[in-house]
């Protein structure tokens, strides 16, 4: 999978509407199919969304949203022992909208906005945070992971409810930096 990560340096989803009609898992499946092929560039247009995938990542200027295409096989259903790619990906550094920084879940689990049920939430919308401040906890099998703010900024949107079960790469917060 590391080779795949190197090969797919560039993956751009150009959004014309606010919602991409593809799940992360579907994009991952598409990347796998393309990676097994001989294509150097694939353009897929679906319901107002344009997905451009280039091998070896020539730079592009037209992408509204870009993300590292590493680790495409890491869909939630396949997580765990067979995890082929113990590689970190910068999932929290994906700008979803201009000026906004998306913070996405690095794991499947339960989302908690509070350190414990009796305490106030870590952050509310509009809160100023510093890089490294805890935004939320995610629990999976009694591992509690504090998700940190990737930059200084303001919490623009809290995308999940307290106690929600979340999938890998699901949007947790939008920050204005």
């Amino acid at each position: 999978m590391a080779a795949c990560q190197a090969a797919w340096g560039q993956c751009v989803a150009k959004q014309r509407e606010s919602v991409v009609p593809l799940t992360f898992k579907e994009v991952a499946e598409i990347l796998k199919l393309i990676d097994a092929s001989e294509c150097d560039e694939v353009v897929l247009e679906l319901e107002g969304t344009r997905l451009v995938v280039r091998r070896n990542g020539s730079p592009t200027t037209d992408g509204v949203a870009s993300s590292s295409a590493s680790d495409p096989g890491q869909a939630p259903a396949q997580s765990g022992a067979e995890d082929p790619a113990p590689v970190m990906r910068p999932q929290t550094e994906t700008p979803g909208k201009a000026g906004l920084l998306d913070v996405r879940s690095p794991m499947v689990g339960t989302f908690y906005r509070r350190p414990s049920p009796d305490e106030p939430p870590f952050v509310e919308e509009g809160a100023q945070v510093k890089k490294g401040d805890t935004l939320c906890l995610i629990e999976v099998m009694k591992l509690f992971t504090a998700i940190e703010a990737p930059e200084d900024g303001t919490v623009a949107e809290i995308a999940q409810d307290d106690g929600a079960v979340i999938e890998f790469d699901q949007l947790l917060f939008r920050m204005r930096t």
């Binding site: 910068p90 992971t145 930059e151």
Partner: peptide, 9 residues
């Protein structure tokens, strides 16, 4: 088990 995940995971 407790952990922190920084901006790069």
């Amino acid at each position: 088990l407790e952990s922190t995940s920084d901006g790069a995971g």
